[in-house]
C-alpha cells in the first residue's frame, strides 16, 4: 500500500468531509423540523391526517434512499413545472439540492417514527396531572410531552444520525464529491482502491465514533435526574 497518494489528495478528502458534514447536518435539521409536527399530528391529529403521515412514513421507510434520491434528482426532469422553477431557484439546478431534499424527507420519516413512539408511550399520570393543572393541549405538549419525549427518543435518534451519516455516501452516486465521492475520484485517477476507500472508511469511522461520543455527552446532561445520588457528575 502506498499512502503518499492520499497525502497528495488531502485537500480533496478535506473538502469531501466538509461536504458530507454540511449535507448530513442540514438534512438532519430540516428532517427534525418536519418530524416534530408530523409526530404530534400522528398521535393527536384527526384520523385523515394520521393516515396521511402513516402513508408518508410507509413510503419513505419502505424504499431505498438511493431510489428516493434518483426519483427526485432524475425524476424532476420529467416535469416542466420543475424546470420552470429552476429558472428562479438555482438551488434546484444542482445535485446537492435534490440530495438534500431526498435525505431530509428520508430522515424525517424515520424520526417521526421514533418521536411518535416516545410521545405515544408518555406516562399517563403526567398527562393527567397536566390536565388537572388546567393546561391546554398545546401548553401540555410544550411543557410536559415534548421535553419528556425528546429525552426518551435520544438513544434511538443517535442511531438515526449515524444511519444518515452513512446513508449520505449515496450523494456520491449523483455526482456530489463528498467523502465517498473523493475516494471514487482518487480510485479513478490512480486505480488504488485500497488506499482510496480505506481512507474514506477511516474518516467515516472517526465521524461515527465522534457522533456516539457527542450523544453520550448529551445523554449525560439530559438524564442528570436519573443518576444515583452522590455519584460524580
Amino acid at each position: 500500500m502506498d499512502f503518499s497518494i492520499i497525502a497528495d489528495s488531502f485537500d480533496l478528502y478535506l473538502s469531501g468531509t466538509w461536504v458530507t458534514l454540511q449535507l448530513v447536518l442540514q438534512s438532519l435539521a430540516i428532517g427534525l423540523l418536519l418530524a416534530v409536527p408530523l409526530a404530534i399530528a400522528q398521535v393527536y391529529g384527526p384520523a385523515w391526517l394520521r393516515w396521511l403521515v402513516f402513508a408518508y412514513g410507509y413510503f419513505f421507510r419502505g424504499t431505498p434512499l438511493l431510489v428516493q434520491t434518483f426519483l427526485l434528482y432524475y425524476g424532476s426532469g420529467q416535469f416542466e413545472w420543475i424546470q420552470q422553477l429552476q429558472q428562479d431557484w438555482t438551488f434546484l439546478k444542482q445535485a446537492y439540492g435534490y440530495a438534500l431534499i431526498a435525505f431530509a424527507l428520508n430522515t424525517a420519516a424515520y424520526t417521526v417514527e421514533i418521536l411518535r413512539g416516545a410521545i405515544a408511550t408518555m406516562p399517563k399520570g403526567e398527562l393527567e396531572a397536566a390536565k388537572a393543572c388546567g393546561m391546554s393541549t398545546p401548553l401540555m405538549l410544550r411543557r410536559i410531552v415534548l421535553p419528556n419525549a425528546f429525552r426518551r427518543a435520544l438513544p434511538a435518534y443517535s442511531n438515526e444520525v449515524i444511519f444518515m451519516l452513512h446513508g449520505s455516501s449515496i450523494a456520491s452516486i449523483v455526482t456530489i464529491v463528498d467523502i465517498t465521492g473523493a475516494a471514487r475520484l482518487v480510485n479513478a485517477k490512480y486505480y488504488r482502491p485500497y488506499e482510496a476507500f480505506v481512507t474514506a472508511g477511516l474518516i467515516y469511522l472517526v465521524l461515527t465514533l465522534l457522533t456516539v461520543w457527542l450523544f453520550r455527552q448529551v445523554e449525560k446532561r439530559w438524564f442528570v435526574h436519573l443518576r444515583p445520588l452522590g455519584s460524580k457528575p
Binding site: 452513512h166 446513508g167 455516501s169 456520491s172 452516486i173 476507500f197 472508511g201
Partner: peptide, 11 residues
Amino acid sequence: RGVPDLVLMLL
C-alpha cells in the same frame, strides 16, 4: 458498523 455500506462495497 462504523463504515457506510457503499464504501465497503466499492472497496
